[in-house]
Design a protein around this nucleic acid. Structure first.
Lengths: 208, 208, 208, 208
DNA sequence: TATGAATGAGACTTCATTCAT
DNA sequence: AATGAATGAAGTCTCATTCAT
C-alpha cells in the first residue's frame, strides 16, 4: 500500500531523489485513468482493463472505487510533507535557505509525482468527507510550513513582501501548477525548472 | 448566447465593471452544478432540477449535456480576452502600466466570473476536441498578451526577471488560482485582493 | 382525406389509370417516412419536419401518429378493391379474361401505389386492432375475388392447377411483392412488367 | 454463434432435417419479440424479460440491440444457402430435378426457420450498412442459384417460361412468403405444403 | 485467487403528446 | 392555423458492485 521508496531520515538529500514509482498495478492504472479522464469519468472497468485484471479481481484488492482514490491521495500529501520536512531539516538556519529548500521540494514533488499530485488536488471534491478532511489538513500544514518561513523571512528582513501570507500562497500555487504542464519529455529538465522557478519564487516574496 | 453586459468600447474602465451575470437559468444551473461536482459528476437531472425544468424541458433549450458545457466555456475566454484587451488599450504606454492593467483584469475576471473560469479550466478534458481547441487557442492568446508585456518590460529595463516567460506564466497561474478560493463573502474585498496580488505579481517579474 | 382521383364507374379502363397521388403533405410525409424507416422507426418530429410543419401543426391535422397510419392504410385497400372490381366488371365473361383483369389490376396498383401498399402490408402489426381487422377483411375479400376466379377457371377447364387456392395465393403474393422492388426509374416499364407477370401468373394457375 | 445442428456434408438428405432450434435464450427471446413487434417496436427490456434476464444481464451477452439483430440475421442466410447447396449437390443432373431440390429446400427452410427468415427479410432496413450488405450478398447468391437452374431448364427445353429471370424471382417470392403465414399447428403439414408449392412452382416456370 | 454472470440504479437522450399564446 | 415550451414515460446503454464457481 505504501507507494514510495522510504525516506531514510539520516540520508542527506534523499528528499531530492525520486525512484520510479512502484505503485501496485491496480493503483497505477487508476492513477493514469483518473489523471486522464477524472474520477467520475473513469469506470471501474476501465481501471481493471488498464491493470490487466478482471473487475472482481480488482475488487479483490480494493473494496471500492473510492478506496482507489483514497489510496492514491492520502499517501501523496503525506509523502510531500515528509519530503518537505526533510528538506527543511537539512536546510541552513536562515529563512532564505529554508525557503529555497521547501520550494525546491515542492517543485520536484510536482514534477516527479505529477499525476498523483494532480489527481489529488483535482479530485478533492470526489473524496468522501473523512478522506477529504484528512487531505485538506495535510495540505494546510504544508502551506503553513511555507507561510511560517516567509513570515520569519520578512521579520528577519530577508524578504520584503508586504503580503507574506498571500505571497506564500502564490508561490505554492505556481509550484503546484507545474504538475499540470510538466512532462519528462518536455524541453526543460527538472533541474532547469527548479533553477528558474526558485528564482521566480524568491522574487515573489521579495528576497534580498 | 452572449451572457454578459456588453463592453462598450469607448466606455473607459468598463472592463473593470461586472454586473450580475445574467445567464439563462439552465446555463446558470449547469454552471453551479459543474462547479460543485464536475461535468462527469453532474447528471442532467441535477441540472434540470436546479433550473426548475423537467429533463425534456432542458433538452428543449440545449440539445445535449455537452452543449451546456460548450455554451458555458466558449463565451468565457472570449470575455476575458475582450476585457484584457480593453484594459490594455486604456493603459499607459509603459510595460509596467500595461502589466498592471492586464493583471488587474485577470484578477477581477477570476473573482467575478470565478465559476465560469473555474469550470472552463477544470473541464477542458471533458470538452469535445473542437471546442477544446478553440478554448485553448484563446487561452494561449491571453497568455501571449502578458508574455509580450513582460518581455518588453525586461527589454525596457522595467522588469528584472531573468525568466520572463516563466514568470509571466507564474503570474497568470496565481491570478487564475484566485477563482478557486475567492468568495464574495470572504474577508478580503476584490479591491484589496487586487492591491495585494498586483504588488505580488510585480515582484514576481521584478518590477522596478 | 380521400387520396385518389375518383374512379368514375362508367369510365372504361379508368382502373388502369393512375394520376399523381395527391396526398395531403402530412400524409405524404408520413408515407415516405414509414416506407423508409417503418412506423416504429419514424418519429412524429420526422414526419412534421418532412411535411414542413411544426409538431403541433401536424397534430392539428391528425390527432395521433396512429391516425396517420390508419389514414394511410384504410384508403389503400379500399382503392385496390374498387379498382379490381372495376377491372373485373369490364372484363369478358371467361375466367381467363377475368383472371387477367384482376391480376393486371393488382400489378398496376402495386407499382403505382407501391409505398402505400408496402406500408400497409408491412405495418399491419402496428395498427390498432380495429383498423387492422378492417384492413384484413378487405385484403381477404380481395384474395377471395381471385380465389373464386381461379376456382371457376379450373371448373371450366381453363386452368389446370391441382391446388387452386394455393396457386391463387401464390399469384397474389408475387403481385404484392412487386411493390417492394419496383421503381419508376428501373429498367422495366409498368407495361412490360404487366406483360411478363401476367404470362407468369397464367402459368402458375396452369392457364390453357 | 452457430445456432443450428451441423449439416454433415456426406449425410444424404440432411438438408431436409430440422431439429429444434437451439438458440441461446437471449437470441430466442429477441427473435420472438422481433417477429411479433418488429425491431424498432421491441424494447431491450422486452427482450430481457422474455429471456428471463435483467437488462444488464442481457448486455453481458450481447453488446447492443443491433448485435442481437445481426446475430439473428447473419446466420440465417448462411444456413439457407448451405442447405440449398446441399440439396442441389444431391439432386439429379437435370434442371428439373435441381429445381425441385432447391425449391423444396427454400420451402422447408421458410417453414422451419420461419421466424428467423421473416425477421431477416423484414428488418433488413434496421441493419447497419455492413450487416445489411453481407445479408443482401448472400440473398442474391441464393437467388442466382435458382436463376441459373431455370435458365438451364429453359435452354434444355425442360422449362417453357418466356421470362426465366422473372419467373425465378416469382418462385422465390412465393416460397419466402410461406414464412409469413405457415404455422406448425396449421391445417397443412410441411410435406403437404411442399407437395403443393412444388407443383405450383413447376407450373410457374412452365415445367414439362 | 480469479472469473463469468448477474443486477438495481441510474446515465443521457428521445418519444408522443399537450397547452398557452 | 401555427408555434415555443413543456412533460411523463420510455428508449438504449453503462454504472459500481456482488456472488457462485
Amino acid at each position: 500500500m505504501d507507494t514510495r521508496e522510504d525516506l531514510v531520515p539520516g540520508d542527506t538529500g534523499s528528499w531530492r531523489h525520486y525512484g520510479a514509482t512502484t505503485l501496485p498495478k491496480a493503483l497505477a492504472a487508476a492513477l493514469d485513468a483518473f489523471a486522464e479522464r477524472g474520477y467520475d469519468g473513469t469506470s471501474i472497468r476501465e481501471v481493471a482493463s488498464r491493470a490487466g485484471l478482471s473487475v472482481p479481481g480488482l475488487y479483490h484488492h480494493y473494496p471500492s472505487k473510492q478506496a482507489l482514490l483514497v489510496s492514491l491521495t492520502t499517501t501523496v500529501m503525506r509523502e510531500l510533507l515528509e519530503r518537505s520536512r526533510q528538506a527543511l531539516a537539512e536546510a541552513g538556519p536562515t529563512p532564505s535557505e529554508q525557503f529555497d529548500a521547501v520550494v525546491e521540494s515542492l517543485l520536484r514533488f510536482h514534477m516527479f509525482r505529477r499525476n498523483q499530485a494532480f489527481v489529488a488536488s483535482t479530485e478533492m471534491r470526489s473524496m468522501e468527507p473523512a478522506s477529504r478532511a484528512a487531505f485538506v489538513a495535510l495540505r494546510d500544514e504544508q502551506q503553513r510550513m511555507l507561510d511560517r518561513i516567509v513570515e520569519e523571512g520578512v521579520a528577519a528582513g530577508e524578504f520584503s513582501t508586504r503580503y507574506p501570507e498571500d505571497a506564500s500562497r502564490a508561490v505554492t500555487t505556481m509550484c503546484v501548477a507545474v504538475a499540470s504542464w510538466y512532462h519528462p519529455d518536455g524541453p526543460l529538465s527538472p533541474d532547469e525548472i527548479v533553477t528558474r522557478y526558485l528564482a521566480i519564487a524568491r522574487c515573489t516574496v521579495g528576497a534580498r
